[in-house]
Design a protein around this nucleic acid. Sequence first.
RNA 1: GGCGGCGUAGCUCAGGUGGUAGAGCAGGCGUCUCAUAAGCGCCGGGUCGGGGGUUCGAAUCCCUCCGCCGCCA
Length: 631
Amino acid sequence: MSKFYVTTPIYYVNDVPHLGHAYTTIAADVIARYKRLKGYEVFFLTGTDEHGQKIEKAAKAKGISPKELADSVVVNFKKLWERFNISYDHFIRTTDDYHERVVQEIFQRLYEKGDIYLGEYEGWYCTPCESFWSKSQLIEGKCCPDCGRPVERLKEKSYFFRLSTYQDKLLKFYEDNPDFVMPEFRMNEVKAFVKQGLEDISISRTTFRWGIPVPFDNEHVIYVWFDALFNYVSGIGYSTDQEKFEKFWPADLHIIGKDILRFHAIYWPAFLMAAGVEPPKRVFAHGWWTVEGRKMSKSLRNVVDPNRLIDAYGADAVRYFLMREVPFGLDGDFSHKALAHRINGDLANDLGNLLYRVLTMTIKYSDGVVPEPTEDRDRELENLCKKMIEDVDRYLDKQAFNRALESIWEVIRAANKYVDVKAPWSLYKENKREELGNVLYNLLETLRLVAVLLYPFMPVKMDEMLSQLGVESTPTVKDVAWGVLVPGTKVKKGKPLFPKLDEEEIAKKIEKEVKEAEKEEEKVEEISIEYFSKLKIVVAKVLEAERVPKTDRLIKLVLDVGSEKRTVVAGIGAWYEPQDLVGKKVLYLYNLKPRKLRGVLSQGMILAASKDDKLYLPEFPENTPVGAQVR
RNA sequence: GGCGGCGUAGCUCAGGUGGUAGAGCAGGCGUCUCAUAAGCGCCGGGUCGGGGGUUCGAAUCCCUCCGCCGCCA
């Protein structure tokens, strides 16, 4: 029996589950259920990532232990997955003892092997900021990019993974496995990144305690990615249940969001190569959802809270929408209107109504029993169904969920048309019983196959649909074929599978909510006069101006701010030419933290008004003195 | 700035080894009655972003410009 091992990322427990988590997990569930349907032995792993400074801090703020915090958040995930009918085989937590042991064991082994070494950041520490910086981050090679103050050459110890030595091996691996990363354009990005050269990466920390300790060095805890990524092997028994591990590894599919691609496509195979373990077969990076046409924000999250969506539309309809609306791998927009439209159009009208009308006819014209087809019946729907079975398989092997669903809907449309063309009511009146029986059989069997192939997408609804067709067993591989429906089976027509929704009403309601959410976002915090007085804004005169090389927008300005000269990089190059700025008086925020832009230290910023992509620099009376402060 | 991609019907997008464009949705008209005011049929002349080139012929190849987007810096 073939195996299939699919994973989601482990989700960080500093957050309640949101639409993005649901999306990834549903996609993995559809694949898992589909592969099971096709007879594979499937292992589906999901879980939570629970270590790190953020959790340590959040727990401290709440006065509980990090583990207690994690425990409480994990419940939210598990509950949501239950509501979405997520069929994971194991839920791993990075605080599970077997996981911690595996991570320590591998860490130890790579250390002994020389792939992990104790290194030091060679200096460039900013004491006030308590931060280390790499050489390339420093301003003019010597100042902290955060505060602009000089950094010290300090040494902090950290364990490093020798990623640099895996550059060629990774590139070779990508060459040999061109669809290791999907979609294809992401593979190109990964290759380009690796070709630029890889630096060794720090994989331990001494600045917090909430993590897996480095086994031979108590001062260090293992940093997040080394800890988290290995869940994919510890979760299936690496070094604890070797038989299971060998059965399922390598993973067939890691489904992730595009933000964590680098870790999965570069670090992860390198870690595994170091550990002498085969890399996974595929990493699929999916896109993000916007909400009602807007970028996801805190207050908009309520609008698409997964639990709320389930309450309003049902888990299966949401699952269907997420898989159908947007090609997996691309970004998309989630709107209640679009969701309701899909439910009404695809699920209620096309599919639900087809089931309903065919069952009615079966009852009216065939005593509610699946008729016996004859050998000389037409094969129109049968052939389409056979093609559908192949198409769905091909598309789902590429994680093209939307395509798979489209090909199922082609058959649903064809079946609706078939009803019209064959007009069973006429056959009935004309007493053409044999043909009528064939037509009904073709339709019922088509519906059964459609339900079987849709089962991975909408398990509860399709279970109900099959039951209405008189099929009570959970579909398995033998059901993915034409001709399985047994003549004589009694159908059990029920209520419409997908009730229709009032799209207008939903649109109105959500529109209102979005407006409120936007108001919430725009809420401007009131500040005190004391707060304002912290800002030192002065009138400055532009002494010199030149474009920052190789940029369109950035202009480097040298300002006379009254007491001294200051250099500022301003993003106004799209609206002003450098020569027009020289001699101008501008508003200047004096005490903004300096930061480096394109290698130039920008001390403070100049102020301008902007609206609708236009920029307006303030003007001053002729006699305004340079250095005059705005109060 | 470097690398990659995109710009096709009102909307979302297919197509693209060169031979005068397709789907779904929306809209209009018509129609059957088994059905959840569902279904089915008909209606799409859109300079395939602009310009130039290769070719008998380009949405499809090449160059260039414009506008978006991704990765990197």
